[in-house]
């Protein structure tokens, strides 16, 4: 295999432009910013659209929304909430369970910006994975926080929860909350790749549980076109979810059904061969390989070279 041959292979491969490679990322940043703006329009401009914080809010005086994890902590610490709180939780649980639980993580949660940036720095520095706790760890952490809440009769985890602290900080005043955000950032860069959102955050765990049957799914519809460049595995914050769908054969569903998938769309963004797309969970259709084969080569040497970057 000569390098000339390799070059020709690289040239044949389509390469999307920057905008196309970042469209869902940009869209997500837009949604995250817009969500924050809704909360800030009141205190900054006197435009009261959404009051409160992500833990519990009131939109235009009619739509209550309450975070299930926070309410769960209050419940196990022995407190039964008011009706607005219950309605708020029901709406949040219902909509996320139907549309996609971890949409919260990648489209709403402000910490996502921090951990995404941390991961970008991590990649730029070419650091090792670092500590990789087991996939169930976040459920253990969730159980632990609830046990402590039950034991102390208090929302003890909220003394350290960097996620609620960050959002409250942005909307009400930071205090030293930035320190816990910096800690998460450094943890994700130097200690553990995708450590916080991908392994530990108990809020992510709760939204993950809501993600089990939800509709919005990413499908590796066009998996026949995949040439193993590994770009999707590189960017996916939960990359163990990709293989079953992408590497599936024949009748294996191309849908990414794993509850850990955050529906961030990053895999769709970075794939130059358009393997992935958003769809619903009943769309198991596969795109048949096109007659004009775009690439005629043996992917092995490229893999050996570390894939396309």
């Amino acid at each position: 295999m000569t390098s000339a041959h390799l070059d020709s292979v690289v040239c044949e491969r389509p390469k999307h432009g920057w905008l196309r490679r970042n469209r869902f990322l940009l869209l997500r940043r837009g949604v995250q910013l817009f969500t924050l703006a809704l909360f800030l329009a009141g205190p900054w401009a006197g435009l009261w659209i959404v009051k409160g914080t992500l833990t519990s809010s009131m939109t235009l005086g009619v739509l209550p929304l309450t975070d299930p994890f926070l309410m769960l902590q209050a419940l196990v610490s022995g407190h039964w909430p008011e009706l607005t709180g219950i309605i708020g939780v029901a709406i949040v649980v219902g909509s996320y369970a139907v549309f996609g639980g971890r949409i919260y993580c990648s489209w709403v949660c402000p910490m996502n910006v921090v951990t995404d940036s941390a991961n970008w720095v991590h990649r730029m520095l070419g650091l090792k994975k670092g500590w990789q706790p087991k996939k169930q760890t976040r459920y253990w952490v969730m159980a632990m926080t609830l046990l402590v809440a039950a034991g102390t009769g208090s929302l003890a985890y909220e003394l350290v929860n960097p996620v609620t602290m960050l959002h409250r900080g942005l909307v009400f005043g930071m205090g030293f909350a930035w320190a816990s955000v910096v800690m998460v950032f450094l943890f994700d860069v130097f200690v553990s790749r995708h450590g916080w959102c991908g392994h530990l955050c108990p809020m992510g765990a709760v939204y993950g549980l809501l993600n089990i049957q939800s509709l919005l799914r990413v499908s590796a519809k066009n998996r026949e076109a995949c040439d193993d460049c590994m770009d999707c595995f590189e960017v996916c914050p939960e990359n163990h979810v990709i293989s079953p769908a992408l590497r599936g054969k024949g009748d294996d569903t191309p849908l990414i059904l794993n509850r850990d998938c955050t529906a961030c769309g990053r895999c769709i963004d970075v794939c130059d061969l358009d393997v992935f797309s958003f769809t619903h969970r009943f769309d198991t259709q596969l795109i048949q390989p096109t007659s004009i084969e775009p690439i005629q080569h043996d992917p092995a040497p490229i893999k050996a070279m570390g894939g396309h970057k």
Binding site: T53, T66, M71, A74, A149, G153, F172, G173, A179
Partner: peptide, 29 residues
């Protein structure tokens, strides 16, 4: 004791106080 097990630290009470009496405790205070 009960309050700490009931309040979800949302700040809705703070927002609806017309006199800006209430505030949320910040970390490090």
């Amino acid at each position: 004791e009960e309050f700490l097990g009931a309040c979800v630290r949302c700040g809705l009470c703070v927002r609806d106080c017309p006199f800006d009496t209430l505030k949320l405790a910040e970390l490090g205070e």
